[in-house]
Amino acid sequence: MKILVPIKRVVDYNVKVRVRRDGGGVETAGVKMSMNPFDEIAVEEALRLREKGVASEILTVSIGVPQAADTLRTALAMGADRAILVQSEESPEPLAVAKILKILVDREKPDLVILGKQAIDDDMNATGQMLAGLLDWPQATFASRVEKTADGLAVTREIDGGSETLSLALPAIVTADLRLNEPRYAALPNIMKARKKPLETIAAADLGVDLTRRLTILSMAEPPARKAGIKLGSVAELVEKLRNEAKVI
């Protein structure tokens, strides 16, 4: 089985972003960038499927600025076999990302695509579902467990009232949730080895996908900050405040 894992370079999850003074975007100068945490989980799951003998090849793809090559190198150091960078001036919208991924799927013919359930910068939670729609493939979002079965995959998903298990024929799309696995760190020797693994670069413009944004940003703002309240000395004081000041009990 061949697995494709799309990964995105995002602002590190530890960074609290700030809106630029002009309101036109967020401050990214000097900000730490990392692989989207859900995509680390997706890469890890692909590696585990290979270690179980289910998968034979793991291909990873990122669409974005030239520096996304660093993110791809991280995935290669974790153990992916090869990488493709689809270079564009910025990360396109999920619909355009899905269209680019569809072209790569048609070319590479993977049996399974594992994506993150959402990118923690734009929080769209859309790309996997959109790709599944474009390919007319079955989808299992928010996966917490993936198992190979005789006729495809059994995927357990986190849903609002608990969890459920779906069975999917291959080829299929899976999006990774937090509890699917704990991703490994790339060991130093593997980071060295990853430099020699193949990384192909394609210009997004050459794929013929229209990258025009359907959504344009009119403004960005930080939500009104909550002001810190008061620390109280006793439980009795808290009960009094909740009853008589806040009036919520």
Binding site: D121, D123, P223
Partner: peptide, 14 residues
């Protein structure tokens, strides 16, 4: 909301 709700973005859809 984007960035874990730290930014609110107003979008126009075409």
């Amino acid at each position: 909301p984007i960035f874990a709700g730290n930014v609110l973005v107003t979008l126009h859809s075409s």
